[in-house]
């Protein structure tokens, strides 16, 4: 009896081990319930630039890839003085596939925007199916970048790199948020439209009214031109970006709690804000 059991054990283990050599990730069919599409609005106003926005619709997750651009949408931007400015449907579809960094828009105005801190803008988006999205935003005062500093490490050759510190002071008002981007290269050559080297968002809840010093890793080479762009944003935009990040992060992470998208577009989904930016450039010595 004992011998039988020994053989059972000795023979069974390798067989079972072999059985374990299958894939642990597999395609499955997931029957999703019906999903009702919403208007998705993404509008970033910038002083001195012609206002534009992208209006698309959300789609069932497993449907076609390209964004759905509705053609029956009318958009009105209301200026701080109450003047309505229609944005015409004029999509630049090329932006969906090119790599220049130019953003896709479905609707665009005609004249550059004049905006001052404190100005309130209103957006009205409606289509022929009765969907109606609205939003309001206020331009915040730009926060100047006080200084940019750098320091090289002691290494040589390709490992000789510098980090950059960007300093600015937070105003004493609470609930300020920031987005700081550092681009590398000559701004005249369009690098500010490309993917940044550093892209950080933060709030002032722990440093309200104090000096911010934001550092990078050792990632810049001698001779690099580094341009810092500091966006002073409101809490709504910060929360929108975080909810987008959390929603993306939850797909594929069993430990994450999925987040709803928190924007400021009523009747739809998305964000409407004025970009209030300051820039500073530092050229690292060779």
């Amino acid at each position: 009896m004992k011998r039988k059991i020994n053989w059972l054990v000795l023979g069974g283990v390798p067989l079972l081990a072999l059985a374990g050599c299958g894939k642990l990730q597999n395609n499955i069919d997931v029957p999703l319930p019906t999903y009702s599409a919403e208007l998705a609005v993404e509008c970033y106003l910038e002083p001195g630039k012609v206002p534009s926005l992208a209006v698309t619709t959300s789609v069932p997750y497993l449907s076609t890839v390209l964004p759905q651009v509705p053609t029956d949408v009318t958009v009105t931007l209301t200026m701080p003085n109450g003047t309505p400015v229609p944005l015409t449907f004029s999509p630049n579809y090329q932006a969906l596939i090119d790599t220049t960094g130019v953003k896709f828009h479905s609707h665009i105005g005609r004249v550059p925007l004049v905006a001052r801190p404190g100005d309130v803008f209103t957006l009205d988006v409606r289509d022929t199916q009765g969907r109606h999205a609205t939003s309001t935003t206020t331009m915040l005062a730009p926060v100047p970048i006080d200084s940019m500093n750098y320091k090289f490490n002691d290494k040589t050759g390709a490992e000789h790199k510098a980090y950059v510190l960007t300093n600015f002071r937070d105003p004493s008002t609470p609930d300020d948020a920031y987005r700081l981007q550092l681009h590398k290269g000559d701004p005249a050559r369009g690098v500010l439209l490309k993917r940044p080297e550093v892209d950080n968002s933060f709030e002032d809840r722990l440093l309200n009214g104090q000096e911010f010093v934001v550092g990078t890793s050792y990632r810049f080479y001698p001779g690099d031109t580094v341009t810092a762009t500091l966006y002073h944003t409101d809490e709504t935009y910060f929360r929108f970006r975080k909810s987008v990040s959390d929603a993306r992060g939850a797909n594929g992470n069993p430990f994450a709690q999925p987040s709803a998208i928190y924007g400021n577009v009523r009747g739809g989904i998305g964000i409407f804000t004025v970009l209030s930016a300051t820039t500073a450039t530092k050229i690292l010595p060779k």
């Binding site: 999703l32 319930p33 999903y35 599409a37 919403e38 998705a40 993404e42 970033y44 992208a54 698309t56 619709t57 959300s58 789609v59 069932p60 997750y61 964004p67 932006a95 969906l96 596939i97 090119d98 790599t99 220049t100 960094g101 130019v102 953003k103 896709f104 981007q181 681009h183 500010l192 439209l193 490309k194 993917r195 940044p196 892209d199 762009t229 966006y231 987008v244 989904i269 998305g270 970009l275």
Partner: peptide
Amino acid sequence: LGRFGVQDIPGSSTG
């Protein structure tokens, strides 16, 4: 159940 695209601001990514 659904999805939508966010392009982000100019200078954040390409396309």
